[in-house]
Design a binder for these strands. Sequence first.
DNA 1: CTGAAAATAAATGTATACAGTTTTCGTGTT
DNA 2: AACACGAAAACTGTATACATTTATTTTCAG
Lengths: 252, 252
Amino acid sequence: MIRGKTDRSETASQQGLKAKRANRAGNLADHVYTSLRRAIIEQALAPGTKLPEDSVGTSFGVSRTVVRSAIVRLVAEGLMVQQPNMRATVASPSLEEARAIFRVRRGLERMVLEELMPRLERSHLTRLRAHVASEEQAKRHSEPETIRLSGEFHLLLAQFTGNELLIRYVSEVVSRGSLILALYGRPHSSECAVNEHLTLIDAMEKGDLAEAVRLMDEHLVAVATRGLLDTDVKRERSLQDILSAYRPAGEG
Amino acid sequence: MIRGKTDRSETASQQGLKAKRANRAGNLADHVYTSLRRAIIEQALAPGTKLPEDSVGTSFGVSRTVVRSAIVRLVAEGLMVQQPNMRATVASPSLEEARAIFRVRRGLERMVLEELMPRLERSHLTRLRAHVASEEQAKRHSEPETIRLSGEFHLLLAQFTGNELLIRYVSEVVSRGSLILALYGRPHSSECAVNEHLTLIDAMEKGDLAEAVRLMDEHLVAVATRGLLDTDVKRERSLQDILSAYRPAGEG
DNA sequence: CTGAAAATAAATGTATACAGTTTTCGTGTT
DNA sequence: AACACGAAAACTGTATACATTTATTTTCAG
């Protein structure tokens, strides 16, 4: 079949495309990347879930090309894995790997504190406390929200350092942490974390680096070990169904 | 023009493709990724160099599709930067960024030592010393080789930990370190490093973690500060010219 | 019925087409 | 001679086509 010039503009997917593009120039791939990422972190896409490029593309109203580059990034980041000629899947780290990741995370978060403490501002403390407040609020109604916010607390800390690379790395280990909790964590494991966040902030306010590092370490060990038992299998849902919630995505 | 079915198999690029594929299934993109990466690390592609997808594709005898995904990875890794609709370029970190990267690197390499020292084996020491030997040998004839080997020493250390994530992160900061030295480093700055590698190995052999960490820190600070002056501009070469050296790539 | 082999369907790898953006370059104006 | 302007060239973003490879189902022998 000879593809006419105007052919493409009639496609349904093309319309969706244009809608998105009106909002923001050129980053369809970014959008898919961000959405998939969030879906994984919020555990809507369970570890091991297979993500065929076609299906994902259909869900977002984009072509495989776009999905592909999003997946490449996710794989590079360790949130997905892929073997040649096979469907990419949401990463499903072994316990061994999980532990290794948490060890790295401990080191990274120590670095965060070491970078941040000398230049800590009052506004930082305020924002951290505000964040913890919203964590507390989310705790009582939304499980995925809680998970996300709990991770974002650590991300916030990293962001205050202003060190781009550190931010990226922390962001990665935090994401993968969520993934790991999705795999091995018990249902309400993030619950206790809120208090630990608060005591950490207190230590920071006192300017006690050593104590802050100790608390952070403790906190992370706690988070890491709170997982292990209760490997309850998530019920199956259709891919289209799951991703439909991530399509609108009114993010800033 | 209507594309006939057999049309593609006649293309020159297609022939090149098949040749590659005979060697190894499916990972054309990997090949391009690896090659570009090496070219950047060995400073054949200077920071700031623009890499149009077309040209790179032509150099390697592949299509833009392939180049694109390689570039996405390089960007994710921080070795290249890209703004929408603009050509991707080899990253050219500012001094500020460079320092931030080296701070992270120090933290990471400390983690490496902390993970490795408790489980250090005699064979590790042997291999490290062997590596330093080849560094010394390369030192007298090949500048890019020296740079690469110097980085690989640190990568080797990381690999001994067996911690995949740590390996990846160290690998990244080491690569970007090369990039930074390419930008701000003086010609023979890597020269002195060999001795520092040796004393570090000695400390490790003694099982003295604290001393090893101290030496590593010192070493990295030295490497970082050895750059700064002498920002001599590299002479221009054609892209095709540079990349042609990376096309064969008889890697294992 | 069970299990292996063949046929079908589903996905990936890769190349290419085309529209829309930047870059580049030449031209005319002050 | 510098500068704005506009057309041409160079690129990127995205969709789509086709060959291969992997997954699934069907078919058929035992």
